[in-house]
Design a protein around this nucleic acid. Sequence first.
RNA 1: GGGCGCUUAGCUCAGUUGGCGAGAGCACCUCCCUUACAAGGAGGGGGUCGCAGGUUCGAGUCCUGCAGCGCCCACCA
Length: 879
Amino acid sequence: MTQVPHKPTVDGLEAKWSQRWETDGVYRFDRTATRDQVFSIDTPPPTVSGSLHMGHVFSYTHTDTIARYRRMAGDNVFYPMGWDDNGLPTERRVQNYFGVRCDPTLPYDDTFVPPPDGGDAKAVEARGEVAISRRNFIELCHVLTAEDEHAFEELWRQLGLSVDWSMAYATIDERCQRIAQRAFLENLERGEAYQIEAPSLWDVTFGTAVAQAELEDRERPGAYHRIAFRRTNSAGGQRSRTDPQGGHNGTVEIETTRPELLAACVALVAHPDDERYRPLFGTTVTTPLFGVEVPVVAHKLAEPDKGTGIAMICTFGDTTDVTWWRELELPVRAIVDRRGRVVTEPPSAITTPAGREAYERIAGQTMFSARAASVEMLRETGELTGEPRKITHAVKFFEKGDRPLEIVTSRQWYIRNGGRDAELRDALVDRGSQMTWHPAYMQSRYTNWIEGLSGDWLISRQRYFGVPIPLWYPLDDASEPVWDHPLVPDDGALPVDPSSDAPPGYDQSARGALGGFIGDHDVMDTWATSSLTPQIACGWSEDADLWERTYPMDMRPQGHDIIRTWLFSTAVRSHLAHDTAPWRHCALSGWILDPDRKKMSKSKGNVVTPTGLLDTYGADAVRYWAANGRPGTDTAFDEGQMKIGRRLAIKLLNAAKFALTLAGDAADSDGFRNDEPTSNALDAALLAGLADLVRTTTEAFEAFDYARALERIEQFFWQFTDNYIELVKGRAHGGQGAEAAKDAHRTLTVTLDTLLRLFAPFLPFVTEEIWSWWRDGSVHAASWPSPKDLTALASGDHSGALWVTAAVLSEVRRAKTEAKRSLRVPADHVAVTASAADIALLELTRNDLTDAGRIGELSLSAHGSAARPEVAVVLGDAD
RNA sequence: GGGCGCUUAGCUCAGUUGGCGAGAGCACCUCCCUUACAAGGAGGGGGUCGCAGGUUCGAGUCCUGCAGCGCCCACCA
């Protein structure tokens, strides 16, 4: 029985229905479904240490519309949600909030309780940071992230994501750690993970190595310093003249932005074809200040038109230095330590008293101070030519850091990703072609990234809140670790923390002892866990049954900015472990830009919080805004769109109320299984249009183009309310007899029913509300409409009838509006001239038309094949 | 330097195999309290579809070149 409220409202629907969906298990995954019946979604777990922002709402809504469509289309949707709480952002929060510091050398303290003054910044500052073990630190991370996750889940529910909450996971939870460690150990076993000591990019603030994928360039001011090197075999005194023209007389001039690295200089390099420097190849020069003899070498990466065309190679100033050092087999003369300071002990190559003295002045200094000191010394000795020339240049930063990266040599773990192996690289590029990209052009970002890789994936981090590298190293007779023979845990023991657990066959007392062991202190990069979300979500190595039903996954939604990190690293893991692509479809979402076209981000301070908007406009309205963002396209934040979304939701409520009232008892019947098709031209035209709409939106959804689907549905809906309902009012009220009314009632019922299903993926709350007035169950469990059912309801081809009738009605309205009269004013006489075909259709709909337009006399005449009807209107007297 | 994308009304954007006068929403203007909806409804004004060529009976839609904007990447001395 239809129960329509008198004054329907969109307010309060979120709380009402999200609760009902949960208790009814509307979105629960059906574990009995086989792989071909399942649509599995690899939701990228959002980072919980920050607040949710509109970008999240935007892209997660896109995914949800697809999920809801697939569910209605008959798939069993596997739609879990995860939280990414692993990694640096959480560490920083915990550190500040509780006032603690992680010291991985400390033993676990199982009696530890969090400082009670957590959150009280002043109290924390007064007492200073407390050092705790890694395990204790991680426990605190769990405490804090659990709260964050709760808040996130609430918001997602308010937004109406049709997630199966029973399958939530967190990347630092025990199961995820176990899977991450197991996957790593398998990589190790297959030779895909390896450890080497090599120069790598290093963040001096966080004290950790970072990976290529985590770099970003930032423009920074710098200066070229022109510095003279003395040619060793040119003899002469200690202070040879410098030659402003370029130093042919006994000196060679280079330009550098990093004069503080002079002590780390191991060679000068120029292009092999550079005539100016050819005579110097094979000779040596002496470094200024430090008096170290270094060779002049040739390499094709040296660019003749950059600086003076000859550069100094330091170990290590930038990644080019690393390439030169490796390919030219130069010695190491490192002077930068892990804190970003000059090491106190000078390189052994510096032997002269003057050199040692010069080194004294930079030892222990920060790069900044060392640079100033170096420049000063070079001025004193006259080896600085002219003044430093200011420039702006790009410098590499860790994306989360705020000091330039240095390059330091350290022992690190890597996973092969094609960066040093053409065959693997090609195979991974190929995997990209096994996935369908939405939009398609995004694939080139994936391909480009792989083709530009310069090394394998560095996965070890010298941090704490992360999944530990599950290895130990035996200590030899000299108490030196035997790096080549790591000790591996038993699978049953996973996850392990090598800093507090002992390896198989050892006792805890052997830790650090002669002939004993040490644990690996490092954790894995957060991406090393995040890249396993398909394995985590689908239960790899833990739940074979679930794995069988869900992997490889159907869809991976994510932002286009993390193709190089998340998407790519996930492809790597699946390729190595399962020899498959992780997903069939990659759906990329754009960013939310503020009105100034900047990406919204916390650091820019232009973030708008979603909660307030959800409260103001309602979830359906916010979803409407999001769903209007084209796949892959950056979209401006626009509250105006939310207002329109809210209006749409309200309009839907009112139109539904009205349609159901008009339809009366007919609404209670199915509507689809009526004996005879309608013969009314207007009804048939509407139903034909509706069938077309269903076809179009189905195609759009199959191509993951939710935005296109919404656009079409909305367009049809307004046509339905503005024209069809207006035209059919009189007939539905019985103005043309009972039989004619029945057709109208059924058409109203069927159209509303269909529109609700079509709108359901976008406006889940308001559609569910209306559905509940007159239908059983949830609209979200209802089937997606079929065009066949709709065309079966209409007899004859009258598809143009609605259009031409509405066009005439519009002309009549215009006449009234332009006469500044009310639409209630009768039109005494309306004369329409149109093509024969249109006139024939108008004859069929004339009663509806005269009702809706309050037309006294309607005369129709066919004339030629005019494209659009010409309408002459004579208005009546005042009402 | 390489790759990708964008450039349509004042603003935000649709326009999918090239086809009969170029669309929507917002903003602006006019009118209407019509018994579904005044946080509404009915109408209206406004665009040489970035520029220059080309293919075609016909191009916003295809091709070439150019320009501007944005993003990604690059070994940035």
